[in-house]
Computed example of a mutant assay.
Amino acid sequence: MVSIEKISFRRVWFITGASRGLGALIADAALADGNAVVAAGRNVAAITERLGESPALLPVALDVTDEAQGKAAAKAAVEKFGRIDVLINNAGFGLLGAIEESSDADVRQMYDTNVFGLLNVTRAVLPVMRSQRAGHIINMSSIGGYRAGAGFGAYSSTKFAVEGLTEALRAELKPLGIYATVVEPGYFRTDFLDASSLKVAREVIADYDETSGNVRRIAASLNHSQPGNPEKLAKAMIELVDASTPPLRLPLGTDTLKAIAEKNAYVTQETETWRALSASTDFAAS
């Protein structure tokens, strides 16, 4: 048996949703880069099957919606490796359907994972990073976290929440030597559009056929032919963590870059159009 104390790791990464998809690929890249990885997921056996066994790997059971499990996983990470340098809040899933088609139960379940689950894990890890006065929290958002669209409104709202939380974390943690970054992937060739990662609203309302209905059809045709290369995304995460001054936002994919440029141009144009009314609501200058 190899003694952990005799092994020097570049950093210790804590990754949620690490049993498959982007989480597993990021874990692979981090391990290959000489880091230790705490790979968290609901099914520990699936993590071990996907990532193998290594002195640098600690699989931990974690349902991010369970606050106690988050604290236990963080404690296990520190007991094993002594610190946590990078947190990747990757666990999450999507919901495809018009806002009216999206059921209360489905939306609440998605918020429990994508938002409240992220908060559970972040709160569990931050005491460790604060004691170190060092660390990097990376929250996985989406192209839909910057620009919402028909069919993904409820999902985008969870990622808008992640964006806002990350902005605030960036300001709160900067004096403590801890960075926060929100990553905005576009459409990458993963299982995100499969049933394992994307719920489709059961109700279908004919009035939305040209908007959300069309998005349902496009999503089905796009599955597993997305433009983004997930292995390149995983490697980009290594470069992000190595950066001396990481960004607040990191868009990944030319589709995300295009979406951001188009939204920024739209916001600028609309703001100028309505500037007079917007400015008219202040108290008159004395």
Rank of each mutant, 00 (worst) to 15 (best):
K71T: 13
E172F: 01
D191V: 07
D33R: 11
Q132V: 03
A45R: 09
G177H: 07
A27K: 02
D66V: 13
K75D: 13
A284V: 14
K232G: 05
T211Y: 10
R170P: 01
T190I: 06
S8N: 15
S157P: 06
T254D: 15
A39T: 05
R50D: 01
A265I: 00
N223G: 10
G82R: 04
D28T: 11
I238M: 03
T211H: 08
F283W: 14
T245D: 14
R275D: 15
S197I: 07
S102H: 02
G145I: 04
K258A: 14
T181H: 04
Y111M: 12
G177K: 07
A220L: 12
R147M: 08
P55I: 04
I15Q: 00
D106Q: 10
S54R: 10
K75N: 14
V12Y: 00
A201M: 07
N214G: 15
R275E: 13
G228P: 02
G117P: 06
F81Q: 00
N90M: 02
N43I: 09
E239P: 08
A72R: 11
I47Q: 02
T158W: 04
K71W: 13
L118C: 09
A61P: 09
S156D: 10
R275F: 15
N90D: 05
I138V: 14
G186Q: 02
T271S: 09
G153P: 03
E210V: 15
G153T: 06
M129N: 00
L248Q: 03
D104V: 15
Y146H: 15
T281Q: 13
V2N: 14
R170A: 13
A154T: 00
T122H: 04
V38R: 06
V107F: 12
Q269Y: 11
A24L: 05
G228C: 05
K71Q: 15
L96V: 12
